[in-house]
Design a protein around this nucleic acid. Structure first.
Length: 364
DNA sequence: TAGGCCATCTGGTCCT
DNA sequence: AGGACCAGATGGCCTA
């Protein structure tokens, strides 16, 4: 049938129109996308609508072709029975019912509806994936995580949070990042590490040297975990570590680093100039709680590509008692799935109490 | 240009 | 019969 499609010049325009690879439309789309990406997206949607529109015309042509195919099949059956015609093997199985034009029309209509449903289903799936992107630790509008990376990061994130809740201890940031980046590609690792303002190359190298184990504060780990100063830290709003309410907290979520949050902490342990002890896990509770989704100003998007929030944590934990996030992601005895069911996580995520609980925990 | 990612179409399977 | 779900195929786009 495909051969027929491509070999029959009279059907070519229909096929091109349906397939979307007509030269004119393609070059036009490409040009539009180059000129304006948004326009490109709009064109894409328009194209889909057009597709729906001309599906009707297309179905007619397809129906004719299908009818021809059916006639061909019947002709073969009449001629050869079990024999093969040339190189084409004879079809076996129950004889097909004759495809009347009405049946063909219905069949095509079903197929169109099924395609439409499938598109909708995939769009819903992608929409859900977009929502997931917003609540995993590294969210960027400009550099979206791929689907598979989003799922991997989400899994790691759930695991990390589960471990925190299960153990009641806070991990050091390196462990936390390594847990988040487990199984992720290098670009995504860089992205996540960038969100955390870590030198990912260093920590990855260290990770390899340590054979997958996370270096503790007393190890030979020499990298400063926070080599970069947030460009916005110098602003007054970022230097303040006092966050009287959740709104302020959300506002700070995009410029906060350990340093910015710990800068105002009375405890000398939070001195960021040296890596002296375990640091608090950067808990990302953006998405539902972040201002990013509400503030759509261009300046906001420009400056806050990545969302990360590091709540201030106590320093009560002794060094070397960080979470043990092994290379398999299964260390620590209990798997995250058994610790924090998906349902619970979502119940918490949907409501501010999760944020409050976690915050309360880390502020004790 | 190869490879990754993605959207879409399509046919098959299972279920209602 | 029809819908949901799935996986394979295909082609477009983008990037290293």
């Amino acid at each position: 049938m495909l051969t027929r499609l491509f070999s029959d010049p009279s059907l070519l325009p229909e096929v091109q129109k349906y397939s979307g690879w007509a030269e004119d439309s393609e070059s036009e789309d490409t040009k539009a996308k180059e000129d304006d990406p948004d326009r490109g997206c709009a064109l894409k949607d328009e194209k889909m609508e057009e597709e729906d529109e001309f599906l009707e015309d297309d179905s007619r042509a397809a129906s004719e072709m299908a009818a021809e195919d059916e006639e061909d099949d019947e002709g073969e059956e009449d001629e050869g029975g079990e024999e093969t015609e040339g190189d084409r093997p004879k079809k076996r199985g129950p004889k097909k019912r004759k495809m009347t034009p009405a049946r063909i029309e219905r069949s095509k209509l079903r197929r169109q509806k099924a395609n439409s449903r499938e598109r909708t289903r995939m769009h819903d799936l992608n929409s859900a994936l977009d929502n997931l992107r917003k609540v995993v630790p590294c969210y960027s509008k400009t550099q979206k995580l791929s689907k598979i990376e989003t799922l991997r990061l989400a899994k790691n994130y759930i695991w990390a949070l589960s471990e925190i809740l299960r153990s009641g201890k806070r991990p050091d940031v390196v462990s936390y990042v390594q847990t988040l980046c487990k199984g992720l590609s290098q670009p995504t690792t860089n992205l996540v590490a960038g969100c955390l303002q870590l030198n990912s190359r260093n920590f990855l190298t260290e990770q390899c040297q340590e054979g997958g184990r996370f270096p503790g504060p007393n190890s030979s780990f020499s990298m400063h975990p926070y080599p970069y100063q947030c460009s916005r830290l110098s602003s007054p709003q970022c230097q303040s570590s006092s966050m009287p309410n959740s709104h302020t907290l959300r506002t700070h979520a995009y410029c906060s680093t350990y340093e910015s949050l710990y800068a105002g902490n009375a405890s000398p342990e939070y001195n960021s100039s040296e890596y002296e002890g375990p640091l608090s896990p950067p808990l990302c509770v953006n998405g539902n709680f972040s201002v990013k989704q509400q503030d759509s100003s261009p300046d906001h998007d420009k400056n806050f590509h990545y969302s990360m929030h590091y709540p201030a944590l106590p320093s009560s934990r002794p060094p070397g008692h960080n979470l043990v996030f092994g290379s398999t992601g299964m260390r620590g005895g209990v798997h995250s799935e058994n610790v924090l069911p998906y349902h619970d996580m979502h119940m918490h995520h949907d409501r501010p109490p999760m944020y409050e609980e976690l915050n309360a925990f880390f502020h004790n």
